[in-house]
């Protein structure tokens, strides 16, 4: 919910006019304009990247027939834009597509789930992956072919993925694909921190491609232009209990 503006015209006994609002907005120009870091734009553009067009097979007469069948069956079929994920649990202020969300809320492709600092959201993605967003985590669901991937815009994402389930977290710096694993990604402006808590990951980005495996926690940084480098030490904040909770979400109905 938005806070009331302390420069409210009514509190000054002035009419709530268009002139007042525009004058107040003009005050922003008193601040020096400042170029944001380029990575911020890259993150935003990655987040809003359109879904790829589905490949069109040469089906000839089948297309009109399929369209007619779809029309006839529409009342008994699920909506075309069915939820791709679901909020399993929520602590603190969580929003989906800008609206407050509670446990059980659906999350569709293209929608952003946001966790306020101090909050936590556990999201079940399809049947074989779960992601726990913390530390101001903000992620958008995207479609990659027939798979769903998580575009991580900010914060931390601890993912648990069932073996054989295609799943990836994408940041401004690269794509972290699970090969049956539990892993944590912390999105940063200049580089991302990745912890392979267990299993194998394929990392892809401007640095090329790398495959990493670990039995226990293994920590690396990835950036645009250098191969993954080992981190000095693990990040706090993804405990065995966190991993167990994310893993348990895989099998929830």
């Amino acid at each position: 919910m938005n806070e009331p503006d302390p420069l409210d015209p009514k509190s000054l006994d002035l009419p709530d006019s268009r002139e007042f609002a525009q004058t107040a907005a003009l005050l922003a120009l008193a601040a020096d304009p400042l170029a944001p870091p380029p990575a911020l734009k890259a993150r935003l553009l990655a987040a809003i990247r359109p879904e790829p067009e589905p490949r069109r097979a040469r089906l000839g007469w089948l297309l009109p027939a399929a369209a007619l069948a779809a029309l006839l069956l529409a009342p008994v079929l699920k909506p075309a834009r069915a939820p791709a994920a679901r909020l399993v649990s929520a602590q603190g202020a969580i929003s989906i597509a800008g609206r407050a969300a509670a446990a059980g809320a659906p999350l569709r492709v293209g929608e952003t789930v946001a966790v306020e600092p101090g909050g936590e959201a556990l999201v079940q993605v399809g049947g074989g992956a779960a992601v726990r967003l913390t530390h101001g985590g903000r992620a958008v669901l995207r479609r990659a072919g027939s798979d769903i991937e998580v575009g991580l815009l900010a914060g931390w994402a601890l993912s648990a993925v069932a073996p054989g389930r295609p799943y990836a977290v994408v940041t401004a710096h690269g794509r972290i694909a699970a090969l049956g694993t539990v892993f944590l990604v912390r999105a940063g402006p200049r580089r991302d921190y990745v912890c392979i808590c267990r299993g194998r990951l394929r990392l892809t980005g401007g640095f090329g491609e790398a495959e990493l495996a670990a039995e226990g926690h293994r920590d690396v940084f990835i950036s645009d232009d250098a191969p993954p480098v080992p981190a000095a030490g693990p990040l706090d904040g993804h405990t065995d209990a966190d991993i167990a909770a994310a893993t348990a979400a895989l099998s929830r109905p």
Partner: peptide
């Protein structure tokens, strides 16, 4: 997305200056 990118280029510096202020 191209319109979004252009809008960002036009207004992000003003807004970033404001929010950092």
């Amino acid at each position: 997305p191209e319109a979004f990118a252009r809008l960002y280029d036009l207004h992000a510096p003003l807004l970033f200056g404001l929010v950092i202020r």
